[in-house]
Nucleic acid binder design. Structure first.
Lengths: 241, 241
DNA sequence: AGGATCAAACTGTGATCTCACTTTAGCTAA
DNA sequence: TTAGCTAAAGTGAGATCACAGTTTGATCCT
């Protein structure tokens, strides 16, 4: 039955991306990598969606060479995986065990980063975090998933960056790269917004009071709740493995 | 003064690597990546050593194309970094703060993995771990750094793999990739072998008793001691940043 | 002897082409 | 209608080439 009306414009991830605006001092490859990485984190691509070298090159306005390196990098980060006998690259479809694997890494590292962030927190950054939290709340009220996800990443990364640990920040970003395509399906879960915003409010409170352990606990709760929603939604997750 | 006799054959990392033995079903790029990654973990390359695309291609017996992708992947993993205005790839020279950054990630993740490994431990694996520990002790007695480092990674990875968490294992491997070039300098520290083997023995004991927290504590102590030796050795570390 | 200069030899980057393979669409035949 | 075959289009992998930039080293002049 009319599936195309149920998902009116099931756009692929490319529709939101334009050709590359070449900035000097940066290689094409680096810009393509950053663009696609952020797009994956923001959930522009769905799990299982295939990424073609030539099509990506056409969209970015370059040859396949820099695209290939960028995609290979993303594969190395776990943001893409080789799929069939044709070695096609696609957005990973996670198994339930992989999801738990990632969840526990996040609990360990983001909890640690949050705790470390307390000492490096400045008023200006705290204000930015508060803004992101407000925008998230507004997006939740309006049901705007795009705006919500964008500010969700912004909220979390602003906290972790205060820990001033670039390597840790990179590993955390890699974990978000893996769950990014899934989180968009998680926000459709009932009560997700409510529970998530409750954790975020608790985190913001702890942040303002300089309470590291409380902040850590709030972040851990947020991660656990999100993983629960993902497990129950069963979209983009394979149960077999 | 005759510096060349002080370091008689300061071999670069390529001297231990041969041309690629093409296995079917694997891409050249994947084999080059795996080869170079393991070489970096084992400390074949020194911090600051430069990696040339064409030279690497000549050693591996391929064109620059697959080499470039492999090196780009390693850069993304943090195993290589772009250096000068010429964008030369080299083995990273870590700052003291980066070293602490990596140390704490390792403490969190490897400690967690060790704790999780208890339930997945099998007698056959336990025997392999015991063997690696014996070989490490023998290498320490003989002062064979190569053999020691090889079995050190083997010892740790055998433990963590028992946790059956591929993503976690990948992140841990990335951390070893970053400290691999440094660890070779750490083993020259006085008492490093003694302290390290004491931690390893404690880990093995905890493993045989199925004591997760004790295993976790032993692993954490090992990581902390190694980081201390690296900080005091000051080789391949910049103090400025 | 010391410093400036210029050319040669390197560096990575990106585009293009060929190849082997897979997938798919369409046609043919049972 | 359906099964099977075939040709076309698509896939990534790898080699090669051209280019811009840097580094290096020798030469020349002071």
């Amino acid at each position: 039955m009319n599936e195309e009306s149920a998902t009116p414009a099931l756009q692929d991830g490319w529709s939101r991306l334009g050709p590359l605006a070449l900035r000097e001092g940066q290689t094409s490859q680096a810009q393509i990598y950053a663009t696609l990485r952020d797009a994956l984190i923001s959930g522009y691509f769905r799990p299982g969606e295939e990424i073609s070298l030539r099509r990506a090159a056409a969209v970015m306005g370059t040859s396949v060479t820099p695209v290939r390196e960028a995609l290979r990098q993303l594969e190395s980060d776990g943001g893409l995986e080789v799929f069939g006998g044709n070695r096609v690259l696609r957005v990973p479809v996670l198994s339930a065990s992989e999801l738990l694997d990632i969840r526990d890494i996040r609990i360990n590292l983001e909890g640690f980063a949050a705790n470390q962030a307390i000492s490096g927190m400045r008023p200006s950054r705290l204000r930015l975090i508060g803004n992101a939290c407000q925008l998230m709340q507004r997006a939740a009220d309006a049901g705007d998933a795009d705006m919500y996800l964008e500010n969700n990443w912004r909220f979390h990364s602003l906290i972790y960056e205060a820990a001033q640990r670039p390597v840790l920040m990179g590993v955390i970003r890699d974990m978000w790269l893996r769950v990014g395509p899934l989180i968009r399906t998680a926000v459709t879960a009932p009560l997700h917004f409510d529970r998530s915003m409750a954790s975020h409010d608790a985190a913001l409170r702890a942040l303002r009071q300089g309470d590291g352990p409380a902040l850590q606990a709030a972040i851990i709760r947020d991660i656990g709740d999100a993983a629960d929603d993902l497990m129950t939604s069963e979209q983009g997750i394979t149960r077999t493995a």
